[in-house]
Write a protein that binds this DNA or RNA. Sequence first.
DNA 1: GGAATGATGTACT
DNA 2: GTACATCATTCCG
Length: 194
Amino acid sequence: MTKSAFGPYAWLRGDALDVAPQLIGCELYHHTAAGDVGGRIVEVEAYHGPADAASHAWRGPTPRTAPMFDVGGVIYVYRSYGIHLCVNIVTGPLSDGQAVLIRALEPLRGLDIMRTRRGNASDRLLTSGPGRVGQALGLTLAMSGRSLGRELILERPSEPLSPQLIAHGPRIGIAKAVDQPWRFWLAGSPYVSR
DNA sequence: GGAATGATGTACT
DNA sequence: GTACATCATTCCG
């Protein structure tokens, strides 16, 4: 009985570059009375604090990005291009603005709900991209700043994924720091974006 | 107060 | 491959 005083999400309190690959294979759900909606994380991107020019945390905390400077295990939701909602998991051990963007899931639970929200898109396109994930899970801006374990839950696989299954490369959709190989995905998964 | 700017997705040529 | 929807946030004056 050596349960951490920080709860089941204490392992998130590390460097985003270290935590990001460990999130591949975990399952993320929006937990509702109607059931869980979500699936297995197959693609993420690390955002590495104020030193990362592509990060929302680059210029320090603002009202929007304050959750990024909270402790690991907190959720950061933002609106992208005025249309989409995207979800990050804050990871920093130092509350220094580190987070991991969830870019794609493999749909596992609540498929019917996700299909309805996504306009009956094919399973392949349900959650293949950060905006699609946000729409399928029914994210809201109100979730930003809250901790995992309530409406959003994260489940770790019983067995860690073999490192050989985790690929990495440059991030997508950003203008700065594009050279950093801080995107991680499950090799061969058809649900990875692009 | 006003203007520029996206960690995107979809439709169309 | 290119066009464009759409709005919260941020920065500047």
